[in-house]
Design a protein around this nucleic acid. Structure first.
Lengths: 227, 227
DNA sequence: GTCTATAGTCTGATAGAC
DNA sequence: GTCTATCAGACTATAGAC
């Protein structure tokens, strides 16, 4: 029972931390906010996780291990079904970004809270979390990059990697969902409630990403343009 | 002379704050780091700006006033040249995002440092800075939204606003330039040096944004699709 | 495994001499 | 306008009782 309580406490701390880091950022969240939000003692974080940094890493690991396994599973399934032939770009984009976005509906996996935390962390990384994320993502990103190279053999690899970045950025911002410029305020009332908005975000974003990915290549002044 | 020194001190503080906020975020940067970075006394920030929050706002105002004036100027020029006819989407996108990206080369206006600060702040906003940014951007965003509505009369306004968001996100992430996932590391050496990369970022991003903006509309299960 | 108490440090801000 | 000195509070982390 003591151990059962302990697992509970860990989860409660992780849930509180996830929510607070999402709302106020890593630096903007104190151990006191986390422990009081979780209803546990101030010392509990250090006992269970060792430090605030380790807690932050555990917040991400808890979700990303599943997400990246799932992305691998999806890509493996697609590739074995394609039997060596290149995949369609839309399949690859959906495997990577669609799998992420579908976490929004899955409260067991953190739901929108985790998505928003991930989105803001990708542009706001302290060195320790950047190193951690890079390691956590390395294998999956590599596999998806290779799949895109195969799917778009006429597009220079450098262009594909850049567009991967742009897709990641559009997605991060969309899921961070802060609407810093309050672009949304004036029309959101008249048209859709918030669940509709989330449901429709996915197809909207996917069509935007694919449009960007397949857009005509830019013309540089320099002579080295492959297509 | 005392006053000349004072203007100098203000600018030195703003420069140091801009750089440190970019590198470590608002919460991650202390007054002591700022003042020692600027080579001024600890009390100087409170004397010149009143508080850390006011300093942050001034860091943005110094750059955004110019940027948004310039965006207005460009849009006015385009519209008066078009004489009432709708603009091309590429003109509008270039007016908004191109004007921003061209600041990268302008060290007088903050260069890449400010761009990266802006990029990370758009997904990492404390409430006070979100309110400030929304107010600072309101007029310009509204004008550009209207221009896009006119340029794309067959696309539902809600879709355009969403795509504005996605473009903003892709741009923010690109200029934040943190490369959290180290996507770039393995190929950057072989191909381009860093100035090339920046020069080429603009056309690359612009073609991605336009591809996304003009992408076929997503099909929802619901019946209300205008195009 | 959970708690209290507290060490040791850093924070933003200010009063007051010059 | 610039400085030193300092306040009052918040911070992470830990030692040690239970």
């Amino acid at each position: 029972m003591a151990e059962a309580r302990s697992v509970d406490t860990r989860e409660r701390i992780l849930d509180a931390a996830e929510h607070l880091f999402m709302a106020h950022g890593y630096e903007g969240t104190s151990m006191r906010q986390i422990t009081s939000g979780a209803g546990v003692n101030l010392a509990a974080v250090n006992y269970h996780f060792g430090s605030k940094e380790s807690l932050m890493q555990e917040v991400f690991r808890r979700r990303l291990d599943w997400l990246n396994d799932e992305r691998m599973r999806v890509l493996n399934a697609l590739e074995s079904e394609a039997a060596g032939k290149p995949l369609k770009p839309s399949q690859i984009v959906d495997g990577f970004f669609g799998t992420l976005l579908r976490m929004a509906d899955d409260e067991e996996r953190g739901g929108v809270t985790f998505l928003r935390l991930l989105g803001r962390t990708l542009t706001d990384p302290s060195e320790f979390i950047r190193t951690f994320l890079a390691h956590e993502y390395a294998e999956v990103v590599d596999r998806y990059k290779e799949a895109l190279f195969k799917a778009l053999p006429d597009v220079p690899k450098a262009e594909i990697v850049w567009r991967f970045h742009f897709m990641l950025g559009a997605t991060s911002y969309a899921i961070a969902g802060t609407d810093a410029l309050r672009l949304v305020t004036d029309w959101q009332i008249e048209e859709e409630d918030s669940t509709d908005r989330l449901d429709r975000l996915v197809p909207r974003l996917m069509s935007f990403l694919l449009g960007g990915l397949r857009s005509p290549l830019p013309q540089f002044s320099s002579p080295t343009v492959d297509l």
